[in-house]
């Protein structure tokens, strides 16, 4: 009997609790989507999507733990490694002098 199947509170196991926590992170991500939509500048949008990416790393890790499939952590690792690519791409993209891109 692994930790995921242990009863926590009110009949819910740890795995179900972690799924609820992941759902909570997704709800927070939906809230942060407001900033990604509203802007007003492009940097605001990139910032919001960057925070969403960090959130997604946590969501994917929580899903991997809750489903007790540790290899799913590879997917979260891909996001952790590549998520800042969009931010540094935008930081080059908005520079107009000298044709950097």
């Amino acid at each position: 009997m692994s930790v995921v199947d242990t009863a926590l509170v009110a009949g819910y196991t740890v795995g179900e609790f972690l799924l609820f926590a992941a759902a909570g992170f997704v709800v927070l991500a939906i809230g942060m989507l407001y900033r990604a939509v509203k802007g007003p500048t492009m940097q605001d949008r990139v910032l919001a999507v960057n925070v969403l990416g960090t959130n997604t790393v946590v969501i994917l890790a929580l899903l991997a733990a809750a489903l007790s499939e540790p290899t799913f952590l590879d997917i979260a690792l891909v996001y952790a490694l590549l998520n800042f690519l969009m931010a540094i791409a935008i930081s080059k993209f908005t520079v107009e002098r000298g044709g950097v891109l």
Binding site: V46, I88, S91
Partner: peptide
């Protein structure tokens, strides 16, 4: 990577 991304955004 997160502070780097924040730096890149603020720099942009």
């Amino acid at each position: 990577t997160n502070p780097t991304a924040a730096h890149a955004i603020a720099r942009a």
